[in-house]
Every structure is written in structure tokens, then in C-alpha cells.
Amino acid sequence: MQVNHSYWQLFKAVYSKDVTLAFRQRAEIVNPLLFFLIVITLFPLAIGPEPGLLARMAPGIIWVAALLSTMLGLDKLFRDDYHDGSLEQMIASPYPLSLCVLAKVFAHWTITGLPMVLMAPMFALLMNLESQALGATILTLLIGTPLLSFIGAIGAGLTVGLQKGGILMSLLVLPLYIPVLIFATSAIDSSSMSLAYGGQLAILGAMLAVACIAAPLAISSALRVSVS
């Protein structure tokens, strides 16, 4: 057999497998989105439909809903691979495990994060968010959701071998999401008050850059522990 090592080929293979699987069971893409929508619907019902109040709370509500719906898909991120032995095959491949992990995280973002970014205008509309805040909402979701996928995947990797890992994973991951939540909501807040929000976006971007490098290492060592 001819051996030809190409990192790009590996990335494509792992990424396309996960995305293909998600498209075969569409529920995987649709359910987190529906959940996102329902959570957002609950807030006006709970606190009253007054437009000013909703607009003030919108950044927080949108982002808390985004955090929660990201968690839904995370539980499944490594679980199937763990149970059918694909994870072992990935470890026993000549490629670094962190690269496989990077591809899987990116696939997770495509499945759960990207649809949220695309649906953002609708959520902003539902929450009576000022139109000038729409750009900030989309931008923070665009930078913030991959960050959520990276951080969440660490928790998913640590708990994949456990019987009831799901709740524990949210316990581990949600505190780590706090900085993302703070900077993202504050960016949207600033923009709805017509203030500059480049600083918050820059910090989110810096966090994403660090996560891109550090998280795959943490995730792959977590997976090695879970498999052993």
C-alpha cells in the first residue's frame, strides 16, 4: 500500500465524516436550533413583552441560549467514536491526534455554531434589538461560537468515557464559558448604544486564537485518558 501523509487530507476526511453524519440525521442540526428558538421564546413570556425591556435583555438572552444549545451537541461530539472504536483508530493513526480533534471541533461548529450565526438576524428581530446592534450580534456569534466549541470539547473529551457524562460536562464547561459570555454581551450592548465595540471583539478573537492552539492539545490528552 502506498503511504502518503497529508495533514489536509486527514482534516478533510475527519471533517467530512462528521458533517456527512450530521446531514444524514438532520435532527442533529435542527434540534439545537429549535432549542435555541424555544429558549428565546420563553423569555418574553416570563418577563413580559415590553419592547424596551426585551431589547435591553436581548444580548444576554441570545448568548445564554447560544451557550445552552452548544452544550446539546457537545455530548455527542466524541461519544459515538468512543463507543464504536473509531477513537482508538484515530489514536493509532500516524497523524497527531490533535489534528483529528481540530477537524472534529470545526465540524461541530459547522453543525451547531454556524446555523446560529445565520439565524441571528431573526433572533435579534424577535427580541426587538436595535438594528445597529445586528452587526455586533452576528460578529460576536461568529467569533464566539467556535470558541464555545473548543472549550466545550475539552469537557466532552474528559467525560466521554463516563456513564452519565452529560450533566457533569455542563458543570465543567459552563464556568469556563463566562469570559466569552461577558465580552460578547458587552459588545452587543455597546453597539446598541452606538459605542465602539472593536475592543471586545478583539479580546474574543485573541481568546479564539489561543483556544485554536491550546485546546486541541488539551482535548487530545483528555481523549487519551478517556480511552485508556
Partner: peptide, 30 residues
Amino acid sequence: LFIGHKTGVNTQLTAFENVCHWLRVHGYND
């Protein structure tokens, strides 16, 4: 080459897709 109890075959994918995916992950491209 390791094949364990859990064989690393994804039951949602077809046989052909499974084999091709395994080949790519292990650096074989034929």
C-alpha cells in the same frame, strides 16, 4: 494495525465509506 472488540466501524456510514475513511485517516490514498 489494531482491530479491537470495538472495530471502529461507524454503523451509520456504508461499508465503502467506512473503509475509505479508515484509509484516509491512516495516510493511505489508494
